[in-house]
Amino acid sequence: RQLARSSSPQDTHYYLLCLASVKEDAFGPAKGLVRNSDPRVRRLGIAALDSCHGPKVEEALLDLLNDPDDEVGDAAAISLTDPRRGTAIALVPNLQSIIARGGNAARRAVVALQRIPGEQTETILVDALSKTSDPDLLAQMADSLGMINSRMAVPGMIALLDDARPLESMQYSERSATRALAGARGQFSAKGVDAESITVLRARTVADAALRSLTLIAGPSAPTNATLPTDTRPAGALREQWEAWWKAGGGLSPRR
């Protein structure tokens, strides 16, 4: 109750340490917090669950992937795949099933898979990319595959460069950047920089999300003038440019 009411970072940190000190006994209080109507309190509940382990904890976190608040969903995905749990690989089938069902939970499950290293999870995401039609889920898959530098996903993302459907949700990388920016605003102000003038550039369409990830994967080898906004050229032209780049070796030096 005191944690839910805490308003200062110092108090919040203190109460979380108190819960962490009782380890598994923190599950009961934490479960109450994640049921709170306030997203901030639910995020605190997830932080309290970080010190708990076991199937009931994992079940609670999997349920929280469907939270209406993206920040809460992100926190659940991060907690689920915390290396200290040592159970992330075992949860891959659960996450795969959630992705197949679609919706908000699917986007957060993609974020969770992004955080589990290995060819298995990369293959699952690439396969799902070819089977998904929901624009926001597609964008999150492209975002996550770009973050793990998946060359396996390049052909699928090139195909998305013609997808001009608008997005309703931010991708995980955008939310992470927004959080980091919010935390650094004080430093910007102290240096005389107008913090309000610095914003995170959002992908507005599926094609935008795909292009950003392709650019990230390609790095300096990206085709010339093919990293500009997707709405600045005739339909199909950007895709054709990236297809030619991929057929030419995708920026990899030919073997001798």
Rank of each mutant, 00 (worst) to 15 (best):
E196K: 14
D194S: 12
G183A: 11
D208C: 03
S213T: 04
R185E: 13
L201W: 10
T199L: 09
R185Q: 14
P234Q: 07
D231K: 11
G186Y: 15
T199W: 10
N225T: 10
T230L: 04
T215F: 04
G192C: 13
L216Q: 13
D208F: 01
A235F: 01
T227N: 12
A218D: 13
A209V: 02
T205F: 01
P223Q: 07
L216M: 15
A237S: 14
P234W: 06
L216S: 05
L211I: 01
R202C: 14
V200Y: 05
R233F: 04
N225R: 07
R202D: 14
I217A: 09
P234H: 12
G236V: 00
T232D: 10
T215W: 02
A226E: 02
G192E: 06
A203I: 03
S213G: 05
V200G: 00
T224M: 04
L238K: 01
A209C: 11
A235H: 11
A182D: 04
G183W: 05
A207D: 00
N225W: 03
R185F: 09
T215K: 07
I198L: 15
V206L: 04
T224E: 06
D231Y: 15
S197M: 07
T215E: 07
T199V: 13
G183P: 02
A237L: 12
T205R: 06
D231F: 15
T232W: 10
N225D: 15
L211S: 00
V193D: 15
F188K: 10
T232S: 04
P229A: 02
S213F: 00
I217E: 09
P220E: 08
L201V: 08
T199I: 07
A237H: 11
D231V: 08
A184T: 11
L238Q: 00
V200K: 07
T215V: 08
L216N: 07
S213Q: 07
L201F: 07
T230N: 05
A203T: 01
S189L: 09
A182L: 09
A226I: 04
P234C: 09
D208K: 00
G219H: 06
V200T: 11
V193Q: 08
K191C: 15
T224F: 04
P223K: 07
A203F: 11
L201T: 09
A184Y: 11
P223I: 10
P229Q: 06
G192W: 06
A222K: 01
P223N: 12
R185I: 08
A184G: 08
S213R: 10
T224Y: 14
D208G: 08
T227K: 13
P234V: 14
V193T: 05
P234E: 12
L214F: 00
L201Q: 09
V200W: 09
R185Y: 05
T227E: 03
G219E: 00
T227M: 10
